[in-house]
């Protein structure tokens, strides 16, 4: 009896160890698939352009240099792309948060006629293809004089960010007990005060999640930035990267340096808020 259990125990241990080896191997292969291109981007950005296509390819060039980064960061035209992206993304984030907080408060704390309709519109807006919107947006922006301006980009980006932000903020407000704001209202305060004095201060975690997500959407947006701006001084980073590609000879190292610089805001935001962010996304998925 005892011997049987011992051997089965050992067998199980051995099997477990084998599984673990297989698992780590599988994970490592997957990690190569996932991360090798990113490593290559980093490596290329640190090479002189002449060595980018060298055979055999080298991960670390003999003369590592930050020249590509210096070139990008000292070129006022390229810096302008970054400034534009920051201006637009930050404005979109602030405005989206403001509008979404107000709407989410109405959804979370009030009953009203048409609630369902507004809700359905907000949800379905997200399925409307941007390519369908971009043609009328172009016409609208030209006729309103917002073509090739910050406000034009900011407003149009909000069509992507607002629905998601409202849904997320509503869900967040719904987790906060109504007694909180009812208590303030009993003391004679209005809903407005309850919102800004009570709900908003304790909703900072939710607002951060919404804000990060909004910033990322706006920072990464491509189609509207491409069609609703015309001059190089209004282009955002994604378009700027493409403009580098259009030049007669490919400056791969500069493109990769710019790609990395352009990815830093999102990478940093993600690393800082990783837990909250993944938590928010995954919680939603579980829910769905």
């Amino acid at each position: 009896m005892t011997t049987v259990t011992t051997t089965s125990f050992i067998r199980r241990r051995r099997k477990q160890r084998l599984t673990k080896v297989a698992l780590i191997t599988g994970l490592s292969l997957g990690a190569v698939f996932a991360a090798a291109p990113v490593l290559w981007m980093l490596s290329t950005s640190l090479k002189p352009n002449g060595e980018v296509m060298a055979t055999p390819p080298k991960l670390i060039s003999g003369n590592v240099s930050f020249a590509a980064y210096t070139t990008v960061l000292t070129d006022p035209d390229k810096l302008r792309f970054f400034i534009n992206s920051y201006v637009v993304a930050l404005a979109v984030t602030a405005l989206t948060l403001l509008v979404a907080i107000l709407a989410a408060y109405a959804f979370s704390r009030y009953e009203f006629r048409g609630k369902r309709l507004v809700n359905v519109v907000i949800v379905s807006v997200q399925a409307v293809p941007p390519i369908t919107l971009v043609i009328p947006y172009f016409g609208l922006m030209v006729s309103m004089g917002l073509y090739n301006t910050y406000p034009g980009l900011i407003i149009t980006h909000m069509v992507f960010t607002l629905p998601y932000a409202i849904i997320m903020m509503t869900a967040y407000f719904n987790t906060l007990p109504r007694e909180l704001d009812e208590a303030v209202k009993v003391d004679g305060a209005t809903g407005w005060t309850a919102l800004w004095r009570i709900l908003v201060p304790i909703s900072v975690p939710g607002m951060i999640a919404v804000g990060v997500y909004t910033f990322m959407i706006s920072w990464n947006e491509y189609l509207f930035a491409l069609t609703l701006t015309r001059t190089d001084d209004m282009r955002t980073v994604p378009i700027g990267i493409q403009l580098l590609m259009g030049q007669h000879s490919y400056q791969w190292n500069e493109m990769m340096a710019m790609s990395i610089l352009g990815s830093i805001p999102v990478l940093v935001l993600f690393l800082i808020f990783q837990r909250r962010f993944i938590g928010g996304l995954s919680a939603g998925a579980v829910k769905a």
Partner: peptide, 13 residues
């Protein structure tokens, strides 16, 4: 559960 709905998940929201 008091969760964030992820992205445009229509009916969930």
């Amino acid at each position: 559960d008091p969760a964030f709905p992820a992205g445009p998940a229509p009916t969930s929201s």
